[in-house]
Design a protein around this nucleic acid. Sequence first.
DNA 1: AAAAGATAGTTTCATATGTAACTAATTTCG
DNA 2: CGAAATTAGTTACATATGAAACTATCTTTT
Lengths: 155, 155
Amino acid sequence: MPERPQPAPLRLATFLPFRLSVLSNAISQRIAELYDREFGLSIWQWRVMAVTADTPGISATEIGQRTQMDKVAVSRAVAGLIEMGYLERRPSTDDARRSNLVLTPAGLGIYELIVPLALSEEARLVSALSEKEQVELARLMGKLAKAASPERDLW
Amino acid sequence: MPERPQPAPLRLATFLPFRLSVLSNAISQRIAELYDREFGLSIWQWRVMAVTADTPGISATEIGQRTQMDKVAVSRAVAGLIEMGYLERRPSTDDARRSNLVLTPAGLGIYELIVPLALSEEARLVSALSEKEQVELARLMGKLAKAASPERDLW
DNA sequence: AAAAGATAGTTTCATATGTAACTAATTTCG
DNA sequence: CGAAATTAGTTACATATGAAACTATCTTTT
């Protein structure tokens, strides 16, 4: 009696894209609560702050590249931060289309409040892993990132 | 001259929650294209199909637990799948509030088309890692998941 | 130097998503 | 038993998001 062809089984719980997505969301949500509840920032706004603190005078386009946000998302996050008084737009002298973005003193202030919170939450999380495991995880993620997006560097 | 207190540096590119999020999104998007472009399914609909194929007669609530989707998302995904003719709702005999969900033959048909595509995309991806590394990655992710969400099992 | 094309960023519009309120059925407990 | 509380699932509303169109500026080409 001929067997009906059995499709390869697919269990969501062992399917890497699913596991990664669930894990990532669980972690992001935890951290997002930190700056949302305490400071009213969205995850996108926080990312914009982070790269702007790191590179004052950065342009919106560069922010997009560094954060993997599309330009609409950047535009909206920037607008929100300006409205809150955390970010300032300075017209670029050599290209009138772009602005140089910098944190205001207020923006820098709350940035400096958030950083230790975010870092300690990260530390709490990775403390489940040994030093060696942390390094290994970063390495494996790097390999995956390259396989997933060979065209452009994700980080 | 007193030093201004230097905040601990936070570079997005080395911040685990960010890296995980970007990696996960890059991968999910690649896979999502597969069933969206080819079959018009959203990622949520695909997840519902996957668990329903795995456990015919499952309820919406159970689907939510297995896929980490909230009940509204499940409700919408189910409604869409029914409209497309891929899913069928059977009233439960012992509890009139719940329905037992099953794939229709059409649903099962496209499910069986998608599975090998999804699996081979996953295989392509993880082939960047050795067998050993794959096992290690799964183990590390499991540890992180427990640290991130000790209350409930993510998988 | 003018036209065509590219780039920075915003706005618009249609769709997706999350929260809260709701309906209907079931369970709990006085 | 019957009121109160719980649970399954849907609906409504407000907000978030993404794609495409748009404005303004800059670059390239001829």
